[in-house]
Computed example of a mutant assay.
Amino acid sequence: MSTHESQTNEILFISDLHLSPEYPATVQRFLNFLNNRARKADAIFILGDLFDAWIGDDNNETPYQDIRVQLGLLTSSGTDVLIQHGNRDFLLGDDFCRHTGTQLIPEEMVVDLFGTKTLLMHGDTLCTDDTGYLEARKFLRSDAFASDFLARKLEKRKAIAADYRKQSGEATSLLPGDIMDVNQSAVESVMNKHGVTRLIHGHTHRQARHQFEINAKPCERIVLGEWHSDQGMALSVTPDGVKEITV
Rank of each mutant, 00 (worst) to 15 (best):
S2P: 12
H4W: 10
N9A: 09
E10R: 10
E10K: 15
I11F: 04
F13E: 01
S15L: 08
D16N: 06
L19S: 02
S20I: 03
E22P: 02
E22C: 09
A25K: 14
V27Q: 02
F30H: 02
L31A: 06
L31E: 03
F33D: 04
A38I: 02
R39N: 04
R39C: 10
A41D: 02
A43Q: 08
A43I: 10
I44E: 00
I46V: 15
L50R: 03
F51D: 00
D52Q: 13
A53R: 11
A53M: 11
W54Q: 06
G56Y: 09
D57Y: 03
D58R: 08
N59K: 08
N59A: 09
N60L: 15
N60F: 15
N60V: 13
N60S: 14
Y64H: 07
G72A: 05
L73C: 12
S76A: 15
G78Y: 03
V81Y: 05
L82W: 13
I83M: 08
Q84M: 14
H85Q: 03
H85D: 01
G86R: 00
R88A: 01
D89E: 10
L91D: 00
F96C: 04
F96I: 10
T100N: 07
G101E: 03
G101K: 00
T102G: 00
Q103M: 12
P106D: 09
P106M: 06
E108W: 11
V110E: 04
L113E: 02
G115W: 08
G115L: 07
T116H: 10
T118A: 05
L119K: 01
L120D: 00
H122V: 00
D124W: 08
T125P: 07
C127P: 01
D130I: 03
G132S: 08
G132R: 08
L134K: 08
K138H: 14
S147W: 08
D148C: 13
L150E: 02
A151F: 09
R152I: 10
R157H: 06
K158D: 07
I160L: 11
Y164N: 15
R165Q: 14
K166E: 09
S168E: 10
G169W: 05
I179D: 04
M180S: 06
M180Y: 09
D181A: 07
D181F: 07
A186P: 06
E188Y: 12
E188K: 15
S189C: 15
S189K: 15
K193G: 01
H194E: 06
H194M: 12
V196E: 09
V196Y: 04
H201L: 04
H201W: 01
G202Y: 04
R206N: 08
R206I: 07
R206E: 02
A208P: 05
R209T: 14
F212Q: 03
N215F: 12
P218Q: 06
P218E: 11
P218L: 09
C219Q: 07
V223R: 03
S229D: 15
Q231D: 12
Q231V: 14
G232R: 00
G232Y: 00
A234I: 01
V237R: 02
V237P: 03
T238L: 01
P239G: 00
P239I: 02
G241H: 00
K243I: 08
K243T: 14
K243A: 13
E244N: 06
